[in-house]
């Protein structure tokens, strides 16, 4: 339990840090010359896709699961 709380706390701190950077001025300056830029706003915007993506996967898997249960019930050997 303690380890899980520590992990979650670390994740919260990291998320807070990058949300802080996202709102900071000058956050768009490059940190590396070679084809990399700092895009904190993009990272926050993509949280939407995290939610949609996970939801989409669970919806598809949920439907497939339900159909599989139905198939097993219909095609399984009768007792």
């Amino acid at each position: 339990m303690k380890k899980t709380m520590l992990f979650l706390l670390t994740a919260v701190i990291l998320c807070s840090l990058f949300a802080l950077f996202a709102s900071a001025e000058g956050a768009d300056e490059s940190i590396v010359d070679v084809d990399l830029d700092w895009h904190p706003a993009n990272a926050v915007a993509n949280l939407k896709y995290m939610g949609l993506g996970m939801l989409g996967i669970f919806v598809v898997v949920g439907v497939v699961m339900g159909i599989t249960y139905a198939l097993n019930a219909i095609t399984g050997k009768k007792k």
């Binding site: 990058f18 940190i31 590396v32 990399l36 895009h39 993009n42 990272a43 926050v44 995290m50």
Partner: peptide, 11 residues
């Protein structure tokens, strides 16, 4: 999806 958000900090 977590990495999508993290990677989009730089790419």
């Amino acid at each position: 999806f977590f990495t999508l958000c993290t990677a989009s900090l730089f790419f």
